[in-house]
C-alpha cells in the first residue's frame, strides 16, 4: 500500500499545481462545504485558545476581566530561565525523552520484525496481545507495579539475589543514577506492543512479489528482513520519528512524579513537574502558560528542522 501510495502521489502531483480558480472551487464546492465543520472545530479549539497566551505576559488572576489584569512583560519567562534548577530540569526532560525515543523505536521495530517472521498465526496473535495489553493500564497502576517490583523484597531484587549477582538488595528508587533507566524500561514495558501495531500494518502492505523475488535470488531470512522488510517500512519510521521529535520536551509527567522522591529529585524533575510546583500549585497560571509557550516554540522549531532534514535526504516528509 505504501508503494502504491507513493506512486499515486507522483502521478497526481501536476494536478495539484494547477491554479485554483473560481471554476475549480465551484466544481469542488461539496468538498468545501464538508470541510466547514472541521475548520470550525480547529479554529475553535486550536486557534482561539492561543489567545490565552496573553496570560504569560500578565500577572494573571482568575475571575477578573481581561482589562483588569496587570501586564508584566517577560517577567515569567525570566523567572523560568533564570531559575537555577531550570537547566537541570531541562536536562532531565531531554535525557528521558531521548532515552524513551531511542528505546521505544528500536524495541518496537525489533519486536515487529520478529513478530512478522512468526508463521503460526495463533502464536503471533498471542504474543501481540500480551505485549500490548499494558498499554491500557494507567501510569498510576504501572508505577505501583514498578515500585513494588523494585522494592527491597521485590521480584527484581529476589531474582538478582537468587542468581548471586548481588549480595544485598539494591535500593533502586533511591539512587539517582538508576532513575532514567527505570523510566525508560517502564516505558518500553508499557508501550512496546502498542507501538508495533503500526509497523506490522506497514509490513503487511509490502508487496509479496518482492519477497518472492528475493527468494529466487536465494536470500536468507535475515537478508529479507534487512533488504525488503526494513526498507519497506522506512517511510513509516521516518514520519513517526519526525512527529516524535516534536514531542521531545514531553518526557511525561506521571512516571517521574509518581516514582520520584527526594533522593532522586536531581534526576527525576521534569519541566512539567517544575511547572506544577511553581505554576499551578501556587495559582501562578501565568508561569504555567509561559512554560507552555516555551515548549510549543521548541517543538515547532524541532519539527520544522527534522522535516527539513528529511526533505534534504529525499525521504518521506510530514509537511
Amino acid at each position: 500500500m505504501e508503494e502504491t501510495f507513493v506512486k499515486d502521489s507522483a502521478v497526481r502531483k501536476p494536478k495539484t499545481n494547477k491554479k485554483i480558480t473560481w471554476a475549480v472551487l465551484k466544481e469542488q464546492r461539496q468538498l468545501i462545504y464538508m470541510s466547514v465543520p472541521l475548520m470550525a472545530y480547529i479554529i475553535l479549539f486550536a486557534y482561539v485558545p492561543i489567545w490565552g497566551w496573553t496570560m504569560a505576559f500578565q500577572d494573571y488572576k482568575p475571575a477578573r476581566d481581561f482589562s483588569e489584569q496587570t501586564w508584566v512583560g517577560f517577567k515569567h519567562f525570566e523567572f523560568l530561565f533564570k531559575d537555577e534548577s531550570f537547566l537541570q530540569v531541562l536536562r532531565n526532560t531531554l535525557a528521558m525523552s531521548v532515552i524513551n525515543m531511542i528505546l521505544g523505536f528500536t524495541t518496537a521495530i525489533i519486536l515487529a520484525l520478529l513478530l512478522n517472521e512468526i508463521k503460526k498465526v495463533v502464536w503471533k496473535r498471542t504474543v501481540q496481545t500480551i505485549s500490548y495489553l499494558p498499554h491500557f493500564l494507567s501510569w498510576i497502576i504501572v508505577t505501583g507495579i514498578v515500585a513494588t517490583s523494585l522494592a527491597s523484597d521485590g521480584i527484581i531484587n529476589d531474582i538478582l539475589m537468587k542468581l548471586h549477582l548481588i549480595k544485598e538488595p539494591i535500593q533502586w528508587l533511591s539512587e539517582g543514577k538508576y532513575f532514567w533507566g527505570i523510566v525508560g524500561a517502564s516505558h518500553v514495558w508499557k508501550e512496546v506492543g502498542w507501538n508495533t501495531i503500526i509497523y506490522l500494518a506497514a509490513m503487511a502492505s509490502i508487496d509479496p512479489a518482492l519477497y518472492e523475488a528475493a527468494d529466487m535470488d536465494g536470500a536468507s531470512r535475515y537478508r529479507k528482513m534487512f533488504h525488503v522488510t526494513l526498507p519497506g517500512i522506512k517511510p513509516t519510521i521516518i514520519i513517526l520519528l519526525i512527529m516524535q521529535v516534536g514531542h521531545i520536551l514531553e518526557a511525561g509527567f506521571e512516571v517521574q512524579y509518581l516514582l520520584g522522591n527526594g533522593l532522586v529529585v536531581d534526576w527525576s524533575q521534569t519541566i512539567d513537574i517544575f511547572v506544577l510546583k511553581y505554576g499551578l500549585a501556587q495559582g501562578n497560571y501565568s508561569l504555567a502558560t509561559a512554560a507552555g509557550i516555551f515548549k510549543t516554540v521548541v517543538s515547532v522549531t524541532l519539527l520544522l528542522i527534522a522535516n527539513g532534514v528529511a526533505k534534504r535526504l529525499g525521504e518521506e516528509r510530514l509537511l
Binding site: A147, A151, S152, Q171, L173, S174, N261, G262, L263
Partner: peptide, 8 residues
Amino acid sequence: DKEAFTQN
C-alpha cells in the same frame, strides 16, 4: 526503615 524515603 531503608525504604522510608521512597515509600508512598
